[in-house]
Design a protein around this nucleic acid. Structure first.
Lengths: 186, 186
DNA sequence: GTTAGCATGTAAGGAGTTACATGATTTT
DNA sequence: AAAATCATGTAACTCCTTACATGCTAAC
């Protein structure tokens, strides 16, 4: 039960880890969380909330606002939900390094420890480096389409990935520096 | 029948538009087409080839190599397939501007006309600008998570989108310049 | 002669989306 | 009193992945 291991579950658990919230609010938060304009549909959010409730990771909070605020359902994280969140954010299975999953894990970095952060950043970086390597190898040996536009697309794609690798490297350096420096972390 | 309007159909039709190919080869081409290391599984490719065959967009070519090259099935585009390809690459429905679909349309730009290219590039650009606008607006008014890592993620996300907008603008300029210049296009 | 790569496929399921359906509350 | 936005939900569907299953062929 509760086989969900997708981006959405992690985003919901993470946001509820900050503070209790109702569905509509969760949606708005998810939509601005990542900074690239993803729009989450109700059709995935509400079924997800149901599943997570059944699984015991979240629960409808007793509504403290007695005024007729109608039927908005405020969810909060249970103890199992907190555990689940930790498991998901620390997991290193194959799906863990995909673009959107990584972004969401990153968004909740403040709820992890510095060594975990470094491990996640390095995991993501080596995954990207594998990609670069793969594309370069097949470019070197394989027969490929070679028109102007494909070449431009590939160039731009590689450049974006390289840029992200540099970004990650900077973050890893910062993380190491600040965990070595007693004034900042801990 | 043949409801596929996804990234994969367009990639397959586009590659077969270049030249006939068998499944295994198609997969390798798709994997390196975009320059960002996407790996296509057989589990989607072969069913897709079947669907497209049934729909009459592609057909198994009579194998010209009589030598026992075993059961590799070389597919080629039919006349309907060429039409279908044109329809898909020129379509401007909501799904047409998504990240991966756009990339694939771009990859086959050499099979389109310059006005089509400009229209597609501008469509993508305005979609990205809408995203930027949306994220900025909710950043301006909405209550949001505001920790160090979320902020960094949002900054990096916005920067990436802005970069892509500049890239598109450059391409649009180039496209206009070269279609105005009789030496290049046409 | 065994490892690596070529080649084709199926079954089950995951993680969402779109479109629909409904109604309350606040703003103009 | 109309329009916008808040708020929750369902049914049907899409596109793709994972894991499995099979066998050929070339290189070392």
């Amino acid at each position: 039960m509760a086989k969900r291991t997708g981006a959405l579950e992690l985003a919901v658990l993470g946001l509820l880890h900050d503070s209790p919230m109702h569905g509509y609010e969760l949606r708005k938060q998810v939509n601005t969380l990542l900074g690239w304009g993803r729009i989450l549909s109700y059709g995935s959010l509400y079924p997800c909330l149901k599943t997570l409730t059944k699984a015991g990771y979240i629960a409808a909070a007793p509504t403290p606002d007695a005024r007729g605020k109608r039927n908005r359902i405020v969810y909060e994280l249970t103890a199992e939900g907190k555990e689940r969140f930790t498991t998901l954010i620390e997991e290193s299975g194959p799906r863990a390094w995909e673009d959107d999953i990584f972004d969401i894990r990153f968004a909740f970095f403040s709820q992890t420890t510095s060594p975990t952060r470094v491990r996640i950043l390095e995991g993501r970086r080596s995954r990207l480096e594998e990609r670069l390597e793969g594309v370069r190898q097949s470019a070197a040996k394989g027969r490929q389409r070679a028109d102007k536009y494909t070449a431009e697309l590939r160039r731009h794609g590689l450049e974006s990935v390289e840029r992200e690798v540099r970004w990650l490297s900077d973050l890893i350096d910062q993380e190491r520096a600040s965990s070595a420096d007693p004034r900042e972390e801990k």
